[in-house]
Design a protein around this nucleic acid. Structure first.
Ligand code: SF4
Ligand code: SF4
Lengths: 157, 157
DNA sequence: TTTAAAGAGTACTAAAAAAGTACTATATAA
DNA sequence: TTATATAGTACTTTTTTAGTACTCTTTAAA
């Protein structure tokens, strides 16, 4: 499916929770409670995030936990997605992908996915977790798109 | 991973092959040969496509095969993707998704993915298999975007 | 009318990926 | 010193995806 992994989704939820309380360390239990995700899963995800990202500090011991070092509007959701899942590559034959497609020798579409992959990447790139938390489509579009092109295409409910 | 299923990818390759020879019926063996995909897999995919799409005709018997009823520029790649995989839903809590997220009762992000999901859907919607086959980024962008916004964001190689 | 060729339908198997669990080690503040 | 919290690792289960096999039906040509 063309869907975010559950773990990646959860990672974003966890980071959003941290971004709301940047003044202190939040521990896994607190995140688990607030997110409605099991403690074990939160622990697993947080460990991963810390080891792979550069915008989070962890502190052990009592009154320890996690704290962000960047603000919500400075963290693009593509950072989290690529951190958890590796590079966004819609197919195997896209630039930057490590795996190789077994049909690439015959396939006349080889490499042609790069354009659309780039467009999707740029979309994700321009979307911060602050945008995600605010959930207001109008503010995002006016901020990021000078024209009304994309705006009109959206079927606002 | 944020990647197209192999079967969906293959489906698009097969349809592209058909679109190059719209004057006659092409059988599974010929597609298999041209695509470099095993015959059994091509057969499976073609059966699926026929049963789910409205732009392909199948003919049994000798000199049978498959033929498109629409031109390449009239078939959006999102048609094929959603036909093979179901609706494009970046998370479970996006409108139009059938499954339910187990955290949706607690999660304060519930519903907030709709915007970005819509933008991705629109991107895929506006991309036809003719665009994919041509592989020329400039022609696509000038055709579909009146402004130079997205154009400038792309890192053209 | 017969026959070979090709798709339709269905069920099954194998492989890969994702999600969830458990346990030990290490660091920290009280 | 102790309780608490993260770090690291390995394992198991579940789910999804990919691949295979076989029978049935349709069709055009011999
Ligand atoms: S080379 Fe062809 S079959 Fe392989 S990933 Fe690219 S488009 Fe798909
Ligand atoms: S409700 Fe929250 S956890 Fe569930 S799919 Fe939506 S964002 Fe993800």
């Amino acid at each position: 499916m063309f869907k975010l992994n559950k773990m990646t989704d959860y990672a974003i939820v966890c980071i959003c929770i941290l971004s709301k309380k940047m003044d202190r360390f939040i521990n896994a239990q607190e995140i688990s409670h607030e997110a409605g995700i099991s403690l074990a899963t939160v622990q697993k995800i947080m460990k991963l995030i810390v080891s792979k990202s550069d915008f989070i500090t962890a502190l052990r011991g009592s009154s320890g936990g996690y704290k962000l070092t960047k603000k919500a509007n400075e963290i693009s959701i593509i950072n989290i997605i690529e951190m958890m899942d590796g590079p966004v590559c819609i197919t195997d034959c896209v630039d930057g992908n490590h795996e190789r497609c077994s049909s690439s020798e015959n396939c006349f579409l080889e490499g042609n996915w790069n354009n659309i992959n780039m467009i999707i990447r740029n979309t994700l790139q321009s979307y911060s977790i602050a945008d995600l938390m605010c959930s207001d489509p109008i503010s995002y579009l006016y901020k990021n798109h000078s024209n009304e092109d994309e705006f009109n295409k959206m079927e606002l409910s």
